[in-house]
Structure formats: C-alpha cells, structure tokens
C-alpha cells in the first residue's frame, strides 16, 4: 500500500439557507432535499496514495467538480477534514493556503482557463511570476515544462492561435511549472474531440510515468476512468458509491448504478493477468509477464504463442495463464 498523500474525512458541501444543521445531523439525501437544500457533496471520505492516479467519476451534477474544489479548497466545504501530508487544509489561514497552492498544488481546468493576454511562455510562467520569481529563472523553468508537453517553438504564440489540444497542453505545462506534488485535473480532456482526447490521455500517462505525481483526476467518461485510473471513486448525488480498482469496479460493481456503467465495458480492458492466473508454473512456459498487465495488452502475444506464460508479481513467479483463460476473458466470460 502506498503512503497516504491526500485524505478527506466526512467532507460535506451543502448549499442552502442552513447547511450546518444538516451536516451536524448527517442528514440523508431526502432530508436535505425536503428542507430546500442541495447536497453537492455528502459525507465523502477518501484516501489518495503517493504517486497514485485517483479518478473521481460521475455524471454531471454528481458533485465531482465540487468535491475536487473542496479538496483544493476553492470551494469552502460545509464540514469535514482535508488532510494534505497530514495538515488539515480547512484549518489553514488564507496566507498559508496561498503558500500551499503556490508550491505544492497544480490544477488543470476543463476549459483550459488560459489568460488570453499572455503568450504561451507567459502563461506557463505565470504561477512563478505570482511568487515573485525573476524573469530569467522563471522563463527557463517555463521552457522546461513547455518542452515536456511538446510545445517547444510555440512559446511566443497566444492562446487564441492554438488548437484545443495545444491549449490544454499549455494548461498542463502551467500546472506543472511549480513542480507540485499534488496534481488536480478537472475533466481536462472533456472539451476535446475524441481523437485528440485519446492522444492526450496517452500523453498524460507518459508524463505521469516520468513525474510520478499524486493525481486526482475528474471525469464523466467511464472509459477514460478505467483507462487511466489506479483507483476509481464513483459518485452519485454527492456521495461516493464505490472506491475500487478499475478491475474490481467492472467485475464487482457495488450496485445497479455502477453496474449500468460497467455493463458494456470489454473485460479485457480491465482484467489483469494476476486475476486469471492459476497457481503453479508448468514446464515449457513461453515466457514471463507481470501480474499487473491488463489482458488486452498481452492477449495477442499469449494467444499466438499457443502456450502458457508465467505470471510475475514483485519478482516472484505466482502462477501461470493459459491462452484458453485469455480467450475466455476476451469473450467476456472469465475473470
């Protein structure tokens, strides 16, 4: 288990005339509605591990954007605790909060939120400028992250001269300029068309392999969630319905609501070799494969070889997978 980087405990955000009373009573959805309030976030407790991609998934109105704004304290929660490296953000003074955001948090926005009057370079350097960095060092650092997202050569462009995908690359670069530990992405690819979205997801995974940030990623797209997540939290009506790995969510949905999302998901996309491995390593395996690998990624290799593969977890052989087991998953049966 990874060490906990960010945790929230019993976080509430209720809009309406007397929100505190409802939090004190830990009121249910019905009671909140009946009293003319809106429960945007209801009693959410989560733990995000160091270096983890934690995806919060929900339909519009489920409270996921409010939750991420509570975590970053852009929205003041009605109650609860938000612990970042053990420090309760809700007890931080405004100046302490500015300090934390300046050095330890980054955020990417759905509609990019680029400043139209600044060039790419100035946009990316903006968070450093706010901290009072001199022009030389801040532009040097900005150039570094700009090349990380593959936009070198466009430093002097203005946002309006860039495509949507390029603009979001600027947004990503800007959020990384201060080298934050904690990285919030609020539906970063929702405003992009599907082809670009796929490309940006790959780009995002590449950057994360390199930087290993602790990530809270918001999306309404279940496919995106299972593609990117180490763990997924599914939200409905402001509450978290299930927190699990993509594999568990698909194989063991907590309720009908979750099942409705997972019904059409190809199992090979989420099932790992570890799950379908059987104990023992027979003679004449075709090779070794990691237990974390998803079936979809290695299916062709296993099936075309026609022989079993040994499965490795933490350096040790823990079992083997057969082509038959892989085919069963591809047909939507196993796992």
């Amino acid at each position: 288990m990874r060490p906990v980087k960010l945790a929230c405990r019993h976080v509430w955000k209720i809009y309406g005339p007397h929100p505190d009373r409802l939090v004190a009573d830990a009121a249910g959805l019905e009671a909140i509605r009946a009293s003319g309030h809106v429960g945007a976030v209801r009693d959410v407790s989560l733990e995000v591990g160091q270096g983890e991609i934690f995806v919060i998934m929900g339909l519009s109105g489920s409270g996921k954007s409010t939750l991420v704004r509570c975590l970053s304290r852009l929205v003041e929660p009605t109650g609860g605790e938000i612990l970042y490296d053990g420090e309760d953000l809700l007890k931080a003074s405004p100046s302490r909060m500015i300090e934390i955001r300046r050095h330890r948090m980054g955020m990417v926005f759905q509609h990019f939120a680029l400043l139209p009057h600044l060039s790419v370079l100035e946009n990316v350097a903006f968070p450093l400028e706010v901290q009072g960095w001199k022009r030389g060092p801040r532009e040097a650092q900005a150039r570094e992250v700009i090349s990380l997202v593959g936009l070198q050569g466009r430093e002097r462009h203005y946002p309006r001269q860039l495509s949507g995908g390029q603009q979001q690359r600027v947004g990503i670069a800007r959020s990384l300029a201060i080298k934050p530990d904690l990285w919030f992405l609020d539906e970063p690819f929702s405003a992009l068309d599907p082809l670009i979205r796929r490309e940006m997801q790959d780009e995002f995974l590449r950057i994360q392999r390199q930087l290993k940030k602790t990530i809270v990623f918001i999306t309404h797209d279940f496919d995106e969630a299972i593609r990117l997540a180490d763990r997924i939290a599914i939200m409905k009506d402001g509450a978290v319905v299930q927190v699990a790995t993509p594999e568990e969510v698909v194989l063991a949905p907590a309720d009908d609501y979750v099942a409705a999302f997972t019904a059409h998901v190809a199992r090979a996309k989420v099932v790992t070799l570890g799950r379908i491995a059987v104990p023992g390593v027979p003679e004449g395996v075709a090779g070794d494969l990691p237990a974390e690998a998803r079936v979809e990624a290695v299916a062709e290799q296993i099936v075309t070889s026609g022989r079993p593969f040994a499965v490795i977890r933490d350096g040790a052989k823990v079992g083997h997978v057969t082509p038959q087991a892989v085919i069963a998953v591809l047909l939507g049966k196993g796992g």
Partner: peptide, 9 residues
C-alpha cells in the same frame, strides 16, 4: 479558480 490555484493574493 485558476488565479486562486496559482496562489494569487
């Protein structure tokens, strides 16, 4: 939101 997240006073 961005301005706040960037740590603007």
């Amino acid at each position: 939101d961005f301005a706040n997240m960037a740590g603007c006073t």
